[in-house]
Simulated scan of single mutants.
Amino acid sequence: MEATPALDDAVVRWSGEPDGRPVIVLLHGYGADESDLFGLSTMLPDAFVYAAVRAPLGMPWPQPGYSWYPIEGLEGRSPERTTEAARRFLEWVDAALGPDAIVGLIGFSQGGAISLQAMRLAPERFAFCANLSGYVTPGELEGDAALAERRPPVFWGRGTHDTVIPEGLIVHTTDWLPAHADLAGRIYPGLGHAVSPAELDDLRVFLEKRI
């Protein structure tokens, strides 16, 4: 199994200089890149600085974009690959933001899975997380008990017509999140694997409460 490389700091997109404001890191989904979620930064509270990172793996030829972990073949949605990618992301957070920064996460799909996995690996590192059309990776991690005690705010939004994430992972996430986080969740009728204006409004309210 090829190791997951480090994140490329040179391609990170920033909404502004890290000037002491809390930082929200945006983690895109499968086949996208750092520009995919960056546009959200103009529609969300300016009390935060936004940083959009690029996943470390290229897509199988000839598909464009990047991924956090494979979803095809024998390694498809492997918990070990998800955890490895989350550790590479944590390394970037520590190097780019330093130990004292207040950091929140917004992840879409794969990026949502990595956001929650990183929070499980380092429960004290992140102030909150928004998981858009993502899921919690099955299995136990060393930080799960500490996370359940800390119970950070987590927003989880998904659509009724999202057929991308397997039903078993949705069931697991539905059971797992309330026991480990202060959960704010909403299911959007008719929405597929995407972010709707209604979900964006809810995300904005969630972030305003974190200020």
Score class of each variant (00 low, 15 high):
residue 143 G to I: 00
residue 205 V to Y: 06
residue 48 F to A: 07
residue 73 G to R: 06
residue 146 A to Y: 00
residue 177 L to S: 04
residue 30 Y to K: 06
residue 147 L to V: 06
residue 92 W to M: 13
residue 163 T to V: 07
residue 145 A to G: 09
residue 187 I to L: 13
residue 37 L to V: 12
residue 38 F to Y: 13
residue 92 W to P: 08
residue 91 E to M: 07
residue 41 S to F: 00
residue 70 P to S: 10
residue 206 F to N: 12
residue 51 A to K: 09
residue 169 L to Y: 13
residue 190 G to C: 03
residue 116 L to I: 10
residue 52 A to L: 07
residue 99 P to Y: 00
residue 13 R to D: 09
residue 20 G to T: 07
residue 87 R to F: 00
residue 46 D to I: 07
residue 65 G to D: 05
residue 178 P to A: 00
residue 160 T to K: 03
residue 112 G to N: 12
residue 152 P to T: 01
residue 127 A to H: 15
residue 13 R to S: 13
residue 34 E to L: 11
residue 113 A to I: 15
residue 91 E to A: 14
residue 143 G to V: 00
residue 43 M to S: 15
residue 97 L to H: 13
residue 87 R to A: 11
residue 90 L to D: 15
residue 103 V to D: 00
residue 162 D to F: 06
residue 74 L to H: 11
residue 37 L to T: 12
residue 57 L to M: 11
residue 82 T to A: 15
residue 59 M to H: 08
residue 105 L to F: 02
residue 96 A to R: 15
residue 79 P to R: 11
residue 191 L to G: 10
residue 126 F to D: 07
residue 136 V to D: 08
residue 78 S to Q: 05
residue 104 G to V: 02
residue 123 P to D: 09
residue 95 A to C: 03
residue 209 K to E: 15
residue 124 E to N: 13
residue 187 I to F: 03
residue 78 S to E: 08
residue 191 L to F: 03
residue 179 A to K: 15
residue 11 V to F: 02
residue 127 A to Q: 14
residue 188 Y to E: 08
residue 114 I to E: 06
residue 119 M to S: 01
residue 189 P to I: 12
residue 115 S to R: 01
residue 30 Y to A: 06
residue 62 P to Y: 12
residue 184 A to G: 04
residue 103 V to I: 14
residue 68 W to H: 05
residue 179 A to G: 09
residue 138 P to T: 03
residue 35 S to M: 08
residue 159 G to A: 11
residue 138 P to G: 04
residue 145 A to P: 06
residue 108 F to S: 01
residue 154 V to K: 09
residue 116 L to C: 03
residue 121 L to D: 05
residue 170 I to M: 14
residue 118 A to V: 01
residue 65 G to S: 02
residue 83 T to E: 14
residue 159 G to L: 10
residue 154 V to C: 14
residue 90 L to V: 08
residue 202 D to Y: 04
residue 38 F to C: 12
residue 88 R to G: 04
residue 16 G to S: 10
